[in-house]
């Protein structure tokens, strides 16, 4: 029986989601994690492409994991639905992967690139990264939204490009920290090995906490109620 295997040991990996807008480097972050942690952890990757299996092909061509450990889920051009409203396809892909390669330590699930409100359901992943990049504009972090404010880790990627796109990286990180009420923000560039090491440390720590039973999935959920102060001192609230 596929879905019930009473004789096999129940092995459940840490399920780690990677979300964020198109082109911010989600696949590259996953490739980096795989390349640096594959000797320490048994890994699997599920990609969600919008209309191709481009991301799975990219990861396979990078040779970061054996090909069979990278599987693509087609989301019918609804990437947000596949990680949030109807996670069945992804959930089964994760469960199949965990069963076929038992026992895995970490399964990474890459969302199809979407907007700032697309976050993973806690029914699908245990923890999630949200990836922005400096090239997308320094003001994006300030905009907040569920992914930016609620993900377990916010990654600001491609920081080496800051000077070329007139983005003050330190300011962008400070804006992000403010939007996250002090939650962790990681400035990342694959050209800066120290930042890559920090990313890997975060994943190691999350796996340790998860394996120790100390991690409780947090749902970034909808945008938190907030208010805007107007110039005349009048404020309004909405959610």
């Amino acid at each position: 029986m596929h879905d019930e295997t009473p004789t096999a040991p129940q092995t459940r990996a840490l399920r780690l989601g990677v979300a964020g807008p198109v082109g911010t480097g989600k696949s590259s972050v996953i490739a980096t994690i795989c390349r640096h942690l594959r000797d320490d952890f048994a890994l699997g990757v599920i990609t969600n492409d919008i209309y191709t299996d481009e991301d799975a092909r990219f990861l396979k061509s990078e040779g970061v994991l054996p090909e069979e450990r990278i599987r693509a889920v087609e989301t019918g051009s609804c990437p947000h639905t596949a990680i949030r409203d109807d996670v069945t396809m992804n959930l089964m892909a994760v469960e199949d992967m965990e069963r076929d390669f038992a026992s895995l330590d970490i399964v990474l699930v890459e969302s199809g690139g979407d907007n700032l409100t697309a976050t993973f359901s806690p029914a699908l992943v245990d923890a999630q990264l949200f990836v922005l990049d400096v090239a997308g504009g320094g003001d994006v972090a300030r905009k907040g939204g569920p992914g930016i404010s609620g993900a377990d880790l916010l990654v600001i990627n491609k920081i080496d490009l800051g000077p070329h796109v007139d983005v003050d990286v330190e300011q962008m990180v400070a804006d992000a920290e403010k939007a996250r009420d002090g939650g962790p923000v990681l400035a990342l560039s694959r050209k800066h090995p120290d930042t890559v090491e920090k990313l890997c440390d975060w994943v190691r720590e999350m796996h340790k906490t998860y394996a120790g039973g100390g991690h409780i999935p947090v749902d970034p959920g909808p945008m938190a109620p907030h208010h805007h102060a107007h110039d005349d001192g009048h404020t309004h609230s909405h959610d």
């Binding site: 019918g76 609804c78 409203d85 109807d86 996670v87 069945t88 396809m89």
Partner: peptide
């Protein structure tokens, strides 16, 4: 809206 993945087809 039954969450069974039909939207991908």
């Amino acid at each position: 809206r039954l969450p069974a993945g039909g939207y991908a087809h």
